[in-house]
Design a protein around this nucleic acid. Structure first.
Lengths: 210, 210
DNA sequence: AACGAAGCGGAACGATGTTCCAAGTATATG
DNA sequence: CATATACTTGGAACATCGTTCCGCTTCGTT
């Protein structure tokens, strides 16, 4: 009924943050659990039984529920984990490649990530409390990541400057949602097309300062 | 592997068609089952337990599975039933109201129908064989229904003539999918806006026959 | 009325999410 | 190093579902 009964900070565990000393073995199990969940979800989809994940991680079912009270918490944790991985890829790519190349590679990376999560989309809008914060987190992490890449490429004069990163994120997501199984690289080409679109109008801005 | 093992006619039961004499009590149970399913799905959503529907219909679980071998068959049957109801509303409205009024009312009717089926959309694209034929049936029934209404209104010179009924169907569906719960009549106004859009360009066609 | 077949009800099965607690183990403390 | 204590664990057990099965009931016919 009231929202006060919920943990105000969003309360999702992470293997990176050590909030209150977590016992060493517990930490090890948590990591194994997350890794196993990633693999199982990739193999059998998000509908895979909790027991299968527990077995793959080499722990008991009780351990799973100790770390993730609800099945949806596990899914949410994995999702967050992958959002982080995708967001963290941005600065890494930016350091290794020139701006447009980094931007291109990241968009492809992001597209591949979204394609994996197609079956998650329904759940996201199902009103489940466990997924409520995910949409916000998604934008909070990915929008700045893309924005930085866009700004670098724009500063180098390689692409246009009038593109909103949020629009671009959802545009790519839409592309991936409609991808057919019989066109494995359809999405890749569509994203490449988007990048070309970004380059096309690069000289259209004349209000550039300095 | 091969498609030949599947029933070639699509094999979905209907309370309207009497394929092979159905025993009187069986027919009664089938009707009660369908009605109960409609009510339960409305109340508790499509994820409602089969047992709940059986109880509401006053029959045993075995009876449900006699008529609908799979849970998805029940859902599909209800969906078909409601598609029929929506399609049948078109000629009824056309007989009772002037063309544009009939068109408006039907579009609102259709929008209300779609809004109810939001949770069904994921299942429709999940690849389940039971739902495969539904998309086709959906278009087969609804497109002609809308098209007739559109043509009547166009013939009366009340609306433009360059609107594809299929596009309009999916446009309304899209509107309903993005509807928020805190805006109950948002969809209604959006559909009304669509109707106004139809009226706006009414003089743009000059190739109207007879 | 009697018979055969169609139909019915619900116990039972297997899978899955979730709870619970006795037993085990890491860590702090002496 | 030994001990105490609280944190963790494993998995049996429970609740809920979809689905199957089969003995019994009821309808339609002769």
């Amino acid at each position: 009924m009231n929202a006060e009964t919920k943990n105000p900070d969003g309360g999702l565990e992470s293997q990176d943050l050590k909030d209150r000393h977590l016992r060493a073995d517990a930490q090890r199990n948590l990591d194994a659990l997350l890794q196993a969940a990633v693999e199982v979800f990739e193999t059998s989809g998000v509908d895979a039984p909790v027991r299968e994940i527990a077995e793959k991680a080499g722990v008991g079912i009780g351990t799973v529920y100790r770390h993730f009270p609800k099945r949806s918490d596990l899914i949410a944790a994995v999702f967050r984990h992958e959002i982080d991985a995708c967001a963290d890829a941005a600065p890494r790519l930016a350091a290794k490649h020139e701006p447009v190349e980094a931007l291109t590679r990241w968009m492809q990376r992001y597209a591949a990530f979204i394609a994996t999560k197609r079956q998650l989309a329904p759940a996201l809008h199902s009103g489940d409390v466990a997924y409520e914060s995910l949409s916000a987190y998604f934008l909070q992490r990915l929008k700045p990541a893309l924005q930085t890449l866009l700004e670098s490429a724009a500063a180098a004069g390689e692409i246009r400057t009038d593109v909103d990163s949020k629009d671009l994120l959802s545009a790519i997501a839409s592309l991936c949602m409609s991808a057919h199984d019989d066109r494995p690289d359809h999405t890749r080409r569509m994203v490449a097309l988007l990048v070309d679109g970004l380059r096309y109008g690069r000289r259209s801005s004349q209000d550039a300062p300095s």
